[in-house]
Amino acid sequence: MIALLPQVEICDNGICDLRNHPLHRTMVSIHLPGELRELMKRHGKRNIDLANLLNIDPTAVSKILTGKRVLKAQEAAAIHDWLGTAVTIDAPIATPIPIIGQVSGGNWREAIQQPIGHLPSPDPSIPKGAFALRVVGDSMDRYVEDGGTVVVDPSDRALFPGRFYVVLNDEGETTFKQFATDPARLVPCSNNKAHVEITIGDGTAFSIVGRVIWRASRM
């Protein structure tokens, strides 16, 4: 047992057998997110309660409780006071993301596969199999400048309005655009007005390479 400071002051040399002293609490170290979830359930605490305690977004709480986000020192201390429990949650190791080539940030352009190196993973939750591409062109410069880097999830190909995708046509050319509906089309997000929308269903066959889930650009 480790004595709290007020207990130290009333005990000889900080060693005290007054286990029933009001300041005593059982110290349980938690290292796994599942254990924290179980302890919260035992105390009748909800995710929103933890979000309010730490003053963070509920989505950040979900990442904590699934091991995708590391607790900061002050957050662990706050949970200790909240639950009487020492908490340490280790996040999974983030795997570097391979930069495998280039993608056009403009008109359709031949896909170029040329390993460039690796990008440090910006988030451990990025799925395995994700890869990065360098953007060539300025048709998406409101989000990613010419020469910037995007991370693509090839397992996420379902089209949803407002999301961003790398698209491949039947001639082996790619482009990076935002998807929109009514009508279905690929939309440039550029300060350069020369770029135009690409209508889907105009006779050009295409496939979705994957959804763009992260961006990384030099400032």
Results as ranks from 00 to 15, higher is better:
P6I: 07
V8S: 02
V8D: 00
E9Y: 05
I10A: 09
I10Y: 03
C11G: 08
C11V: 00
C11I: 01
D12S: 11
G14Y: 04
G14K: 09
C16F: 02
N20H: 09
H21Y: 00
R25N: 04
M27Q: 10
M27L: 14
I30Y: 01
H31T: 12
H31D: 04
L32A: 14
E35A: 15
E38S: 14
R42C: 07
R46A: 10
A51T: 03
N55K: 15
A60L: 14
I64S: 05
L65G: 11
R69C: 08
K72P: 00
E75Y: 00
E75S: 05
A77S: 05
A77L: 05
A78Y: 00
D81W: 03
T85D: 00
A86F: 01
V87A: 08
D90N: 09
T95H: 07
S104C: 04
E110Y: 04
Q114P: 01
Q114R: 11
P115S: 14
P115T: 09
H118D: 01
S121G: 08
S121R: 11
P122F: 12
D123I: 03
P127C: 09
P127D: 05
V136W: 01
S139Y: 10
R142H: 04
D146M: 07
V151Q: 11
S155I: 00
S155C: 02
R157V: 15
R163Q: 11
V167I: 15
N169K: 13
D170G: 15
E171K: 15
G172W: 05
T174G: 12
F179D: 03
T181N: 14
D182N: 15
P183G: 10
P188N: 06
S190I: 05
N192V: 03
V196P: 01
V196W: 07
E197L: 07
T199D: 13
G203S: 13
A205Y: 09
S207W: 02
V209R: 11
V212W: 01
V212C: 13
S217E: 13
